[in-house]
Amino acid sequence: MHDFVAYLKARMLVWIILLLVLIISAGIIFLEDLPFIALLDGLVIGAAFLLPILTFDAYRWLTQYRQLTATPEEDPLSHMPAPVNAMDKRYQAIISTQNQLRLSTQVSVQQQSQALSDNFALWSHQMKTPLAALDLLLQVPPVDIKEARTEVKRVDRYVQMMLTYIKVNDVNRDLVLKPVPLTPLVKRVVRDLADLFIGKNLPVQVDPLPTVVTDTQWISFIFEQILTNAAKYTETGSVHVYAKGDAIVIADTGIGIAATDLPRLFEPGFSGYNGRMNQKASGLGLAMSQTIAEKLGLKLSVDSQVGVGTTVFLHLAQQTWKSE
């Protein structure tokens, strides 16, 4: 009964039109002073034609409605009734498109969730090193305040890395593009990492760099990751930051990167031979830096030779610039 009531409501316009035709017909018969039997004859003849049509329409509509009602939520498209007109076809096409978008979004969200879970596990493993070192320092009196502060700074950098990772998919929302002088920016990053360089007595030379239109926060993160890696894997020698061609170059005299590791250097979670041997890397920093660089219209590339050093190129969109 509920289905039939739904059909009556769906065909409300038809009932209104039939009622208007009946009223008009009755009015004409009354005004023309025709016998009332003429109205009855018209009703009978009309019913004889309309009743089979309405019965077929009701049957078709109710069949389609019940099929839709019985459609499972898990896979509705494969169980939907066949369209009977152009409107039905259009609705089903819209539903199919939206369903594909929903599935695509669902897969993307699942992949992001899995990536977050995997990278969080890597980050947690990386966090254990400074926390263990800090715990050991606090257990052996007198406490080495300088070393303790160094480990606290390492923890802070790792926390900031994870906060940045959480926001990295929404870089565009957080962008503030403006002319940024790179020389003071890089020098500020070097000062923030001073404990790493001073601890190894590594000099850092920063040559005059250009002013570029970019986002201060995100490009600072890129330089921080590159310079942190330079400090981690350089025991003797120096680090040199300078402009060359279309790129900002960060060159160190560290242990270098194996040629077999270079093609995978920007893959999330890939730490390479150096990271596995030294237990110093989660494989997140460079992957995040490359993602951010691409969103800024930049690109990272690396050239390295084992035992000689590593050179990282941050390629800028500008081909020419004015140095500071």
Rank of each mutant, 00 (worst) to 15 (best):
M1H: 14
M1P: 08
A10N: 09
A10K: 02
I17W: 13
L20D: 01
V21P: 06
I23E: 00
S25C: 13
A26C: 13
E32V: 09
L34I: 02
P35M: 00
I37E: 14
G42P: 05
V44K: 15
F49V: 13
P52I: 05
I53S: 08
W61A: 02
Q64C: 05
Q64G: 11
Q64S: 11
A70M: 07
P72K: 04
E74N: 06
I94N: 10
I95A: 14
S96A: 10
L103E: 13
T105F: 11
T105E: 10
Q110V: 04
S113D: 06
A115K: 10
D118E: 09
P130V: 02
A133V: 07
A133K: 12
V140H: 09
R149V: 05
V152Y: 11
V155W: 03
D156M: 10
Y158N: 10
M161A: 13
L163H: 09
Y165W: 13
L177R: 12
K178Q: 14
L185G: 01
V186R: 00
K187I: 00
V190G: 01
D195I: 02
F197P: 00
I198C: 05
T211D: 09
V213R: 13
D215V: 00
F221S: 05
I222K: 02
I222M: 05
F223L: 04
I226C: 03
N229F: 04
T236E: 13
V241K: 15
K244L: 09
I248P: 03
V249K: 04
T253D: 06
I255E: 06
I255C: 09
I257W: 06
D261Q: 06
P263A: 02
G269A: 00
S271Q: 11
M277L: 14
Q279I: 07
A287N: 07
M288L: 06
M288S: 06
K295P: 01
K299H: 12
L300A: 01
Q305Y: 13
V312T: 15
H315S: 11
